[in-house]
Design a protein around this nucleic acid. Structure first.
Lengths: 212, 212, 212, 212
DNA sequence: CATGAATGAGATTTCATTCAT
DNA sequence: GATGAATGAAATCTCATTCAT
């Protein structure tokens, strides 16, 4: 009666609401401790409704993880994409990338995704492909691609772009893990800025144009 | 030494056996999925015996984690200790430390400890103090101490030893996570050697005596 | 004949289709295990449509059973009716009746009806009236009637026709239950012939004209 | 402390109590409708205790059925055994056998066993071997054996003992099913006597020494 | 001290049934 | 009249934990 013969928006929204609720609950409780009851309550539906949309707790978990991974990957790739047009000076571009990647990394949902992936790797080995394969490794590859371009353009001195990309990530993630104590403490913005700057400093010392 | 008013060795041994079994089972199944039954079976005792030694599943988990963390920390500290007497050339010493730390990191029990820590951080926040505080952060501090000494001796150029130590770790852990796909693939020895060499290369480019 | 103020044929057909599907599903799964969902699917309609035609699973069951019972009874009565005009020699007529009753008995749907009746007797005591009262007992009575007529005509020697009819049935059902292992094995036609012949043989030995 | 170091009678008794309760509940409600909760309550134990003794509802059912079948079979065989020493006149011996078999047949537990067997044959095909194969068919064979001996001794005229035994059973079961309306009505003792007598009457007419 | 047996609490999942379209 | 979506109720099974021996 609403004129345009409303598309089944309700169905889509509800499925999405359930997946979102599921991820939140899994993030709080872990897979085994989370109970479907609570997910349903958090999504504002009855328990069987959850089972109408997703067949089982396992499926619920996989789909919620896949969705979270996709979203995290997108943000990471967007950050790396900043290197596409670096401008005259490379350093500020690299720092911006670094800073954005740190933002991704300290993001609540990203941390949760990471924790859950580590936690359930033994029980759900295929998550590795979904979360890591389609996520982290694609980001590293994208970064490696950009670095390779810059090396070709003579703006960096890199023999193995893949390893350079891995080290760039490591220079960010290692310290931020330490400063945030595995994500249990909020790291002030200014400290993140410093982390990014320090990582780029080290990276450029090793791979900058004058290197070697 | 036994015989004369026997020390309760059997009791201690059994307790240790239970804790070992517990860690193995927790590592395989995660905390929530592990059941005390199985731990008892793996330790070769009956279920109530487990409860005689450790009051509850929670306690069992905490103690097993603490023991594993202590052992991992010891290995890490031993690796770092190699920097106490670096020899004339710094590079081989750093490479040896790097290589030993990688060995620690890819170790089965270490990976399990890490997974469990991530997994149960929300449910057992105090694990952070036990595992990270007494473990990882002490290792980083020890490394920072060594680096600071070397800087004072003019053999490295380091403004912030803590950050340098964090970056050193990051240059190792980032790539090895990537190469081992979160520990699900065995990384060949030779590749670990290369990883260590590359990390030290980058580190020295940034913090070597000639740096800046 | 259609077109002109269409009789609600479609409705009737659909109701029948649902009842047929219901009986098939109940036969396969039993009452409690059958689910309305599956019945709807087997009938090619949606679940609420089933509820539009039949108010509840219980009702669905009763009606499906009643329909199956009516159909089985009709076949049985037709078989017995063969005795209405026995011909000169009684034996072949009796054998034909026996043979047809065996056919009814080994029929897939009949066996299912029987199984379901036994299974749900406790839960649906009224099924006894519908299935047995309107079915089996009417058949036995019809048979008794025929036998009584033949006794009156001096062609059989029967004191209690009801009991004779029951024994006639027993002589068929007992052996066929045994040979078919409760209907789980197909009994070859020739074996059914023999069973019929043997039953009639025994029956005539006891109740034949020369008996006494 | 009870002197003779009590054998683990409690365990055995409890298992038996559970199986008994299970059979009673299954008999009342059917397999699917029975719930373990109720079985536990009827046995006077907690639900998990049931699962400690029998792994699953299915297992519970199978064992309860097997036990009931064994007990029923034993009674039936004992009845048939009466033919071992028939005495001078065969008729009273046959009547006694018949009468005892009827007793077995109208027994509450036997009827329940029969109903459950029919009901769950589709879901548990192997019950056929346990209940029928080890039960009904063994009884029929035992009866056939006895009849064959009597035929050899010239006291009966039987070509096919197996079929004779099946018919003997049929002559009892058919009428008693009818009179008891599938076991829902109690048949008076005197009527059972008559049924037995009538069955033997017919049987002897067909297979008595003077037959044919 | 070690253990077999028992249990209270809670988890996943299924299903008959009803709205709103 | 037919259907997709939603739900209340209940069933099986598991597990941490405690007695009694």
């Amino acid at each position: 009666m609403s004129g345009v013969r409303a598309a089944p928006r309700g169905r889509i929204d509800k499925r999405q609401a359930i997946l979102d609720a599921a991820f939140r609950v899994f993030a709080r409780q872990g897979y085994a401790n989370a109970c479907v009851q609570e997910i349903a309550a958090e999504a504002g539906v009855a328990k069987p409704t959850v089972y109408n949309h997703l067949d089982s707790k396992e499926r619920l978990f996989r789909e919620a993880m896949a969705a979270a991974a996709a979203s995290a990957t997108a943000r990471n790739l967007a950050a790396v994409d900043r290197l596409r047009a670096p401008g005259d000076d490379l350093r500020p571009a690299l720092q911006e990338v670094a800073r954005r990647l740190l933002d991704c990394y300290v993001d609540e949902r990203s941390r949760a995704l990471w924790r859950l992936l580590n936690a359930e790797l033994a029980a759900f080995p295929d998550l590795l492909d979904v979360v890591w394969g389609e996520g982290t490794s694609r980001v590293t590859e994208a970064l490696a691609d950009r670095l390779a371009r810059l090396a070709l353009a003579g703006r960096l001195t890199i023999a193995d772009p893949a390893r350079a990309a891995e080290q760039f990530s490591g220079l960010l993630m290692g310290p931020v893990d330490s400063r945030s104590r595995l994500g249990t403490r909020q790291v002030p913005e200014v400290e993140l800025d410093e982390l990014a700057a320090a990582a780029v400093e080290t990276f450029l010392a090793a791979f900058g144009p004058a290197a070697a």
